[in-house]
Amino acid sequence: MTKSELITLIGTKQQHLNQRDVELAVNTIILTLTNSVASQERIEIRGFGGFTTLDRKTRIGRNPKTGEAVSVPNRRAVHFKPGLDLRQKVNASRLEYKIRDL
């Protein structure tokens, strides 16, 4: 699902809101989450999951084409840990998919 699809879906489910208000709300939420993670704040949305940043140390990597050793600088990476409700729904949908195939 893309951001525009999400905006359209929310707009059709919440018909009392106009499309511009839904778009503004979604963009504000995404911007707030992005700014929080960028400033190394932890974000937790109960039932959905949490976002944190992890520090990756400098390491020696390999160029896959030449096999030459390359220094990979330290950096930060975003880590998402799904919440219990999300994991249960994903696992339940996987079981439903397997049952339909039988």
Rank of each mutant, 00 (worst) to 15 (best):
K89S: 10
K81C: 08
V90Y: 06
H79L: 08
G50Q: 02
I60P: 00
E96K: 12
Q14A: 09
R100A: 15
R20S: 14
P73Q: 09
L24W: 07
D85H: 13
P64H: 01
E5I: 12
L33T: 00
A92M: 13
L6K: 02
H79T: 13
Q14V: 09
I99P: 15
N18F: 06
R42T: 00
L54T: 12
R75W: 04
L33W: 03
L95T: 15
K65D: 09
K65L: 14
G61V: 10
F48T: 01
T58C: 12
S39W: 03
K3C: 01
L33E: 01
T12P: 02
M1L: 10
R46D: 04
I10Q: 05
I99S: 11
G47V: 08
F48V: 03
V26L: 00
V26N: 03
V26Y: 00
K3V: 02
R76Y: 00
P82G: 04
R59W: 13
V26G: 04
E96A: 15
K89R: 15
R42A: 03
F48W: 01
S93D: 13
L17D: 00
N74F: 07
V26W: 02
T28P: 00
G49T: 07
V78W: 13
S71T: 14
Y97V: 09
E44H: 00
N63P: 06
F51V: 06
L6Q: 09
G11I: 07
M1D: 10
N91H: 11
T34Q: 09
R20C: 03
E96W: 15
F80I: 07
K89G: 03
L17N: 03
T66R: 06
G49F: 06
L6G: 07
L31E: 13
V70R: 10
M1Q: 08
P82W: 05
R100H: 14
T53I: 03
T8L: 14
T28C: 02
S39N: 12
T53M: 04
T58G: 10
S39A: 01
I30T: 05
N74G: 08
D21V: 02
D55A: 14
L24N: 14
D85E: 14
F51E: 04
E68L: 14
E5Y: 07
K57N: 08
F80E: 07
T58W: 09
L102D: 11
P73E: 14
S93C: 14
V90F: 12
E44D: 09
R94Y: 13
Q88T: 08
S71D: 10
L84Y: 14
R75G: 01
N18H: 05
G67P: 04
V22D: 00
L84M: 12
D101H: 09
R59K: 09
G47R: 08
K57L: 12
S71R: 09
G61N: 06
N27E: 10
A38F: 04
